[in-house]
Structures are given as structure tokens and as C-alpha cells.
């Protein structure tokens, strides 16, 4: 079954490769021997109980967390403590946080143009055009001159997605993007993510939205206690999980 997944992008070298990655918080072993490769355009959903290391895994991918053993190669560049490489990788990898983390002192538009202007060194006009393009894509161009504090949670999260997209990243990471939202706002954010997925973006999402995983994901990865326990296509993952831990988790989350 996983052959079909493999065929989908067999031609290209994986854009993300994690080999034997270990991480400790003090004495606590949070990531144990993580091996993962993601091909261009692949959409991956990571799920698992809280504290299973799924957030830490994707945070290692842009060095918000430092791994202590193993290799992480992104777009052919290995993540080391070299600042230049970290910056290079970060400008290719967009990230969306659970708590949006918009800059409250800047308008929505300024939030979106900040990094393109200072990192990509775009002229302001051009940066604003790019920003408006993506704000239209997340369907809130009319809020461009408001401050984040004036928007609803769902709108803020969509701005955060637009802000990340303005850097034209090759990979997008989502760290529980809907967990901090009121239920009625989850859909607008998920819709945005679905349309992003349909455009062919490489995506790694930590989420508990199993509906999203079913419709969008190419692969679902189940993590527990710092390990990848099982990974499969969503069809297989939800209907016929192999592992006892996975079954238990699914029974809890799907009632």
C-alpha cells in the first residue's frame, strides 16, 4: 500500500530527511530515534497523545529546538548550529503556531511584509503586493490595516498563515493550528489549510483534526512517548491500524 505513496514523488530527493534524531530536555528523553523522510508536495499529519513529541519533532525542523543526535537535512542543507544555515532553512520553512504569535504592535499588512522586506530584501511596494496576494488567498484582504488585537482568533490564524506564505516557503509546518480556536472558527482555518494543500505545498501538520487528516493527508504519522509508532495512508491508518497503541488512541479520539 505504501508503494503508491512512494510512487507519487519517487523522482525527487526528499525535501526533509530526519535520520536517527534524538532529543533530550535535561534528563528527559523526548525524541527517540526519529526517522522520517518527506518528499516534495507531500502532506503529512502527525498525531498522538500530548507529550508524545510531535510538536518537538516539527520544531526541530526549523531549529526552534536543537536536536542532540542524528541528522536533519532540509532541501539538501544539513541543520547544524551554524547561524547562516539556520537562517537559510528558516526562510524556506514557514511555521504556524498554536497561539498565532502575530506581532501585536504591527498591522496585519506589516506583519506580512516584515520578513520579506528584512530577510528577502524586497522593496516595500513589492512586499505589500505579495502580502495582499496572500491575504486575499486567506480571504481577509479587507483587514490589512487593522491590528491583530482587533481580529478574531480564526482571522488571526489566517493572517499567521498568510504571513508565513509571504516568505514563499517550500515547506509549511503547522503546530496545532486549530487547538486555541473557538469551535466555530476551526473550519475557516481548516479550509485555508485544505486549499493550501491542494496547491501542492509540502505540509507537516500536528493536529487532532482527523477529518482534515482523512481528506488531505498523504500520510498519517502516529507518535507516542517520543517515537514514531505507526505511519500509513489515512485510509489504512483509520480503518485498519496495525498497532495496539494506535488503536487505543483512535478509539479515544474518535469515541
Amino acid at each position: 500500500m505504501s508503494d503508491s505513496v512512494a510512487q507519487a514523488g519517487q523522482a525527487s530527493e526528499p525535501v526533509i530527511r530526519m535520520q536517527g534524531v534524538h532529543k533530550w530536555f535535561g534528563q528527559f528523553h523526548v525524541l527517540k530515534d526519529i526517522n522520517l523522510s518527506v518528499r516534495q508536495g507531500e502532506r503529512i499529519v502527525l498525531c498522538g497523545p500530548s507529550g508524545s513529541g510531535k510538536s518537538t519533532t516539527i520544531r526541530c525542523l526549523n531549529r526552534l529546538e536543537e536536536h542532540q543526535q542524528g541528522r536533519i537535512v532540509i532541501n539538501g542543507v544539513e541543520l547544524t548550529s551554524d547561524l547562516k544555515q539556520i537562517e537559510a532553512i528558516r526562510s524556506e520553512v514557514g511555521m504556524v503556531f498554536q497561539h498565532f504569535n502575530l506581532f501585536p504592535h504591527l498591522t496585519v499588512l506589516q506583519n506580512c511584509t516584515l520578513a520579506p522586506m528584512w530577510v528577502r530584501k524586497l522593496p516595500r511596494r513589492q512586499a505589500e503586493e505579495v502580502a495582499m496576494h496572500y491575504l486575499e488567498r486567506v480571504r481577509i484582504p479587507e483587514q490589512a490595516n487593522k491590528f491583530p488585537g482587533q481580529l478574531s482568533g480564526g482571522q488571526q490564524q489566517r493572517v499567521a498563515i498568510a504571513r508565513a506564505l509571504c516568505m514563499k516557503p517550500k515547506i509549511m509546518l503547522f503546530d496545532e493550528p486549530t487547538s486555541a480556536l473557538d469551535p466555530e472558527m476551526v473550519k475557516e482555518v481548516l479550509d485555508t489549510m485544505v486549499s493550501l494543500a491542494e496547491s501542492g505545498m509540502t505540509m507537516l501538520c500536528v493536529t487532532h483534526e482527523m477529518g482534515f487528516a482523512r481528506t488531505v493527508a498523504d500520510r498519517v504519522i502516529f507518535m507516542d512517548k517520543g517515537e514514531i509508532v505507526e505511519q500509513a495512508e489515512p485510509e489504512v491508518f483509520f480503518t485498519n491500524p496495525v498497532n495496539d497503541r494506535t488503536k487505543l488512541f483512535l478509539s479515544q479520539i474518535l469515541h
Partner: peptide, 15 residues
């Protein structure tokens, strides 16, 4: 979170 968000956009520590 502000530092993390800014860093994840590729801004340098000074920026």
C-alpha cells in the same frame, strides 16, 4: 512565542 515566530520567519537575532 514572539521570538519564535520572528525567528521562524528567518529574521536574524539582532533583527
Amino acid at each position: 512565542g514572539q521570538t519564535e515566530a520572528a525567528a521562524s520567519l528567518g529574521l536574524r537575532p539582532g533583527q
